[in-house]
């Protein structure tokens, strides 16, 4: 995409690739993100914000945020990625560009604990009413331990692998070459 190449130098875009003819991804510094999105929206025709999402990488201590924007004229979607630190978990709000961004940011605050200062109602509960534990979508949050502690698990629960169960039912004599661990 030549449009992207134009932007590359000005916004120090570190990584860009085209996944499909109508879908591309670029990675940018968190500090330049809002400016880049503003240009994409107002100059480059990417007028639609499809979603904002986050991926947690506790191994590297980072969150990767993806802002998916869409250009209706060229029918092209562009994912703008940025990597922020997991410890501070702070990001600039883009609700001034797209009003609906505040809802995504509210959700990210609740589910990942990423704060967006200045975003309207970002501290309000989104889905979880009265949640008191750590943000549940962080990968170091042990949902199973939390569930067992909180929700009165019923004893005697058995879990059986459907593949092995059907194998023993249908082919009792069959022994696989390698037993999976």
């Amino acid at each position: 995409m030549e449009q992207i190449n134009e932007l590359k130098a000005r916004y120090s875009i570190s990584d860009s690739r085209d996944q499909r003819p109508d879908l591309g991804f670029i990675t940018v510094d968190p500090g330049r993100l809002a400016a880049l999105l503003a240009e994409l929206q107002q100059v480059r025709g990417y007028t639609h914000l499809s979603f904002i999402t986050a991926v947690d990488y506790p191994e590297t201590g980072t969150f990767q945020l993806t802002y998916m924007v869409h250009n209706f004229e060229s029918a092209h979607s562009l994912g703008v990625r940025t990597v922020i630190s997991r410890d501070t978990a702070l990001m600039e709000s883009v609700h001034h560009l797209w009003k609906q961004a505040k809802t995504y940011q509210r959700e990210l605050k609740e589910m990942y604990g990423i704060d967006f200062p200045g975003s309207p109602g970002v501290d309000d509960p989104f889905i979880l009413e009265g949640w008191q534990g750590p943000p549940p979508m962080r990968r170091d949050f042990d949902t199973r331990a939390y569930s067992e502690k909180t929700y009165f698990p019923r004893p005697g629960r058995k879990t059986s692998d459907p593949r092995r169960h059907m194998q023993s039912r249908l082919y009792p004599d069959y022994t696989p070459f390698e037993e999976e661990t």
Binding site: L128, P136, T143, Y146, S147, Y151, F152, P153, R154, R157
Partner: peptide, 16 residues
């Protein structure tokens, strides 16, 4: 509703 079903270890669904 019996024991949480396939959501038994979810952080937000009840088990019993």
């Amino acid at each position: 509703t019996v024991n949480g079903g396939m959501y038994w270890d979810s952080y937000n669904t009840i088990n019993r």
